[in-house]
Design a protein around this nucleic acid. Structure first.
Lengths: 211, 211
DNA sequence: ACACTACGCTACGTAGCGTATCGAAAATTA
DNA sequence: TAATTTTCGATACGCTACGTAGCGTAGTGT
């Protein structure tokens, strides 16, 4: 987003001072366009190089694999996914789910994520490094929200947070992957209701902050 | 591509009467061995041809894509997945889940399915024909079990069957894809308990959260 | 025996990968 | 401005796998 200031990012910014610089955006926008308009199959390093007018060698110096390029696209697109802090767990989850659905269905984050998942299954060495940290990254926000709900008594103390994340996140990803049913707010709301009804506390609403 | 009777080549059965026959198992066992021992990335048509001593051209005549070959491996491996008919919905679901988990983690069905899902994301034209019928095939048994439970009053009448399938099947597939947490009976049991608690009929016995 | 058909083999053209080399361009320093 | 340092662009190469074509051969039914 800010190529000229030397603001260091994970993989995109060159670390040294001298020499020519490519604009990182040139590569990412070309990749995003191909990914959105033509799909993951057409996204090749050669193609990105040709369309962005960046040499293939240069591309490989920064992004050693196509997956690394997609990862950066994904992280870039999902940067505005934050803790909603609405005050109760159901609203929090709904807000997160709505944002996720919007990102997945209307931005480059969707095909990027699907491509990353697919690549991880196919390319053996990427399954470990890629998904290990990646899935943790994805789960962190939901885990935070759920743990907070447990702490303030909204959810039963023994709630298995990872199980809840898998049930909700898994169902959404399932529909994304298979495309057998629509993904909309009605779906996510019902899904969250269904899963939460198994672990909501029986007690009254928390009185700590007096809502 | 089958001259005699509309018999689809997807089944691997030779449709005609005359000429030499390859043993279909020669190709499938070679493919299964590669898939299990070396993963989906190493599974190439050239490799299967070389190891099974079947000509590459012959391979392509029967299985036009690698995905078709994997599909046949998957269907072959999951042939013994049947309706458990235990008498109640929770036992039914547990039995199905246990079988699915066993097939996915201990047979060629696991890598075959992951490969198929991955391929569908990457190869654009396979996403439609492949997953459309494929996901329906996968859901049919669970849908049968759940609908039966609704009919006999175990589940609430308004239960969204597809939603329940997505929550359970999605979570299991999620763990398979990302490999971030173990998949065992304890996981599937808790998962089924969690999801079912949101749609069990009131006539069912009240349940404590401990086990 | 014959006709028919499927198979094996070889070869070919294409796509994309990932790397090596080298000259040129940009940014920093003097 | 000039020199230095570093990166970028262009080209070429070898490699793997794809998918197809042609042709001879081996198995199958009548």
């Amino acid at each position: 987003m800010n190529p000229k200031t030397g603001n260091p990012t994970l993989t995109g910014e060159s670390g040294s001072l001298r020499g020519r610089r490519i604009t990182r955006e040139k590569a990412l926008t070309a990749a995003a366009r191909i990914l959105l308009e033509e799909g993951y199959a057409r996204l090749t390093m050669e193609r990105v190089a040709a369309e962005s007018r960046i040499a293939k060698t240069t591309l490989y110096r920064r992004w050693p694999t196509k997956a690394a390029l997609c990862m950066e696209l994904y992280l870039e697109a999902t940067r505005d996914l934050r803790d909603p802090r609405t005050g109760n767990v159901k609203s929090d989850l709904r807000a997160i789910a709505d944002t996720v659905v919007r990102l997945q269905t209307r931005t480059v984050a969707g095909p990027a994520l699907l491509g990353l998942i697919a690549e991880a299954q196919i390319t053996p060495e990427s399954k470990g490094p890629l998904l290990a940290e990646f899935s943790q990254q994805r789960r962190r926000l939901t885990r935070l929200v759920l743990q907070r709900a447990i702490d303030r008594g909204e959810l039963q103390p023994g709630t298995d947070v990872d199980l809840v994340i898998d049930a909700i996140g898994g169902a959404i990803t399932f529909r994304l992957l298979q495309g057998h049913a629509p993904i909309n707010k009605r779906f996510t709301n019902q899904l969250i209701d269904l899963v939460l009804s198994g672990c909501l506390s029986n007690r009254a609403l928390p009185r700590k902050n007096g809502k």
